[in-house]
Design a protein around this nucleic acid. Sequence first.
DNA 1: GGGCAGGATTGGAACGTTCAAGTTGGTTGA
DNA 2: TCAACCAACTTGAACGTTCCAATCCTGCCC
Lengths: 330, 330
Amino acid sequence: MAEKVTIATVAQHARVSRQTVSNVINAPHIVRPETRQRVQDAIVTLGYRANQAARQMRTGRSRLIAVRIEPTRDGINGSVLDRFLHGLTETAEASGYRVMLYTAADDDREIATYGDLLSAYDLDGFVITGTDHGDPRTAWLAEREIPFVTFGRPWDHLQSHSWVDVDGAAGTAAATAHLIAAGHRRTGFIGWPAGSGVGDDRRAGWRRALVETSVDPTALDAETEDGIAEGARAARELLDRPAPPTALVCASDSLALGAMQTLRTAGADLPVIGFDDTPVAAAVGLSSVSQPLGDAAARCVDLLTDLLDGPRHGPRQVLLRPALVLRHPA
Amino acid sequence: MAEKVTIATVAQHARVSRQTVSNVINAPHIVRPETRQRVQDAIVTLGYRANQAARQMRTGRSRLIAVRIEPTRDGINGSVLDRFLHGLTETAEASGYRVMLYTAADDDREIATYGDLLSAYDLDGFVITGTDHGDPRTAWLAEREIPFVTFGRPWDHLQSHSWVDVDGAAGTAAATAHLIAAGHRRTGFIGWPAGSGVGDDRRAGWRRALVETSVDPTALDAETEDGIAEGARAARELLDRPAPPTALVCASDSLALGAMQTLRTAGADLPVIGFDDTPVAAAVGLSSVSQPLGDAAARCVDLLTDLLDGPRHGPRQVLLRPALVLRHPA
DNA sequence: GGGCAGGATTGGAACGTTCAAGTTGGTTGA
DNA sequence: TCAACCAACTTGAACGTTCCAATCCTGCCC
């Protein structure tokens, strides 16, 4: 094992003081180019790497950001997190940050974990996913002025903190417009009960697209909880109506998958478009609205590092457009 | 914001020295019970939490373990990582460790990242997934005596380091036995080309189950790369043989899914069992061999903390039995 | 040539913890 | 009676970095 190389080793090797080495690293512009070069050479030669713990103790900053890894929800939608985490880690690395994971069974314990992570590890910031109306977590963080970004809009006060989200309405609108263009004026929708921000948003996009072509959406709308069985049931119910839809847009791939099952057993051949572009959709040839998760993760890191490193400007928001992925059932 | 509470604050409050507080935390048995209680009360009252950075600087240990988050492979099998990570994080927390993520495009860069993580963050250990024959990463770590555990057997020298794995052969054997018990003596297998440790293992289980009932496996075996289309092709090829199988076991859910497609279009109704129990399998009602990922993750952490905290004993190995999840296609 | 401004560099101190080497005070044993 | 010992606790130093204040140059102007 090689000797431990510290800032002092580098200083000695480059015949300068510790502080000058530190300056080369943290404020290169105040060091004379000639000296800077000599120090940089020494750093490379010795393979020096700044010790984060020591830096952290002095500065109080850890260059660490925390993300919660959720106790795998229904599984079918869960795999979304994978891609998001990967994007997050990758972008964070590029900005000199690292990602730390944590879990929590509920909001209260999650908040307790914040305290722990902050005082024990000096965490710099948080990325929060799956926010709800009046989320206690964001309130807690905001109150203490701890930097954080949410992936998902706060549906109550849109401007109060930084967030990144995907424009679900634009996604369902695009899906609906695609079906209308293919001749399906009566495109139905299976979505979640009103009240969830995300669900309402996705329904709104579908509704908008229909209204734009002067079709009344009310008779083509089905509300149900998420799930394959629920989707199947809702599809059956829609087909039994007086003027059934000739195509379907769904708020999730789970619902869409259920709908496809109903259609197959009923021998009906309506096009269905899901939401989230999960692996399942790809596997069964289901068209779906795809969230740009890599981008979303990258923007989350950007907004967070903005809060951490950047000059003091208020919170920022980013709304990304999803893409429509068209497939043909096998 | 509350005043920062350090070990000195606690010491003052409990009328003891810093060191005694430190002892209460790290070596309680050497402190008189009475004093210990007083210190512990002070800790609770003040809400003291040991600063990791300071501890780390002194001890050289970070209580951090690193896991790679992979650049989402084919998606269908990828969602396995989610559950594994969650289990890892949860168990690590219980043992007082935290999980840090990293990415790397290839083995070389992964090794470079090890160096970075070790010298900058003083990482205590690594959990490595997806190991291959003669993996350069494990060699690098072993050479430097850095604690690590792999999820997946090293297929060359089984005893050289700690690992956790799932007994794939037991899984396919159970699946095959189940089908045989249902009357399918000619149970076929679709697996990957010989040479991959995991693939060969899964094939071996199927083969063993057949041989036990005196059926010759050779004519019922198909080799192909992983993928839905490949699975479909292999199934067609198997069905065209002189004595086609009456049931199928597959090395992955992707292959199984492809096989199911072929069977449906061919109007054949053979039972199919996949491997990994991915969300896709659950969605389409595919029976599958389920890996106990939560357990596996927990055991990984156990073995790693064993290496880190425990008394010096050699590497250990854990082989977990997978479970057969039976479903009925919708 | 002496004074001065300002950029470049330096040395001491501090962050919060644990290690190593103490100091106390009480008990044992010859 | 006093050395030796032990348990319980304390004190100073060190980990590697950055902050802060001080010092050293260098060139410029009068």
